[in-house]
Computed example of a mutant assay.
Amino acid sequence: MKFTKAKRQDDGTIPSTDLAIPFFGYKSHISIDRKFRFIRKWKATDAAPSDGARLRDGLLDETNTASSVWADTAYRSKANEDFMEKHGFVSKVHRKKPHLKPMPRHIQKSNAGKSVI
């Protein structure tokens, strides 16, 4: 559900209730050849499932000569890391921030370098 901001009434007060509007969306998962800037594989899914599950679901192309996998933190999991290692891919996936702790400086720098790609 998406909540909208209640509009001010004529007298300037804001109503105490908020409107809930259902919304629908989708996600695009894309595997790109960095050198030639060509889309090798893609998958569109509804927004409900997690991103990480799509990585093992045929998104990676084993015929690609490049073995690095660049992705955001949604794709980092133990299962995905094991899958990439088993199939000969090198993980360049962003690291997550530790729970209730500040992001260590070396991880910040690493993620910033990965974001450039």
Rank of each mutant, 00 (worst) to 15 (best):
F38W: 13
K96I: 02
S110K: 06
K7H: 01
E81F: 06
P15M: 05
D72R: 05
S28A: 14
T65R: 04
L59T: 09
D18G: 08
K78M: 11
D57Y: 14
K86V: 06
R40D: 02
I21R: 15
E81A: 05
F83L: 04
K5T: 02
I32H: 09
F83K: 07
V93C: 10
F3Q: 04
T63H: 13
F36R: 13
P102I: 08
G113C: 03
W70Y: 15
A66I: 10
H87K: 08
S16M: 05
D10A: 08
T73P: 04
S115E: 03
T17G: 02
I14F: 01
K5Y: 08
K5F: 00
K2I: 06
P98T: 11
K86M: 15
T65L: 14
D46N: 03
M1D: 02
D11F: 02
S31H: 02
I39E: 10
S110E: 04
P22C: 14
P15A: 06
E85S: 13
G52H: 07
S77N: 05
K97L: 01
G58L: 13
I21E: 13
I32M: 12
E81N: 15
F38G: 01
T65P: 15
R105Q: 01
F24A: 08
S110N: 00
K97R: 11
W42D: 02
G88R: 10
P102L: 09
N111T: 01
F3E: 02
G12V: 01
E85V: 15
R40C: 04
A74K: 07
E62N: 14
F23I: 08
F23Q: 11
P15T: 01
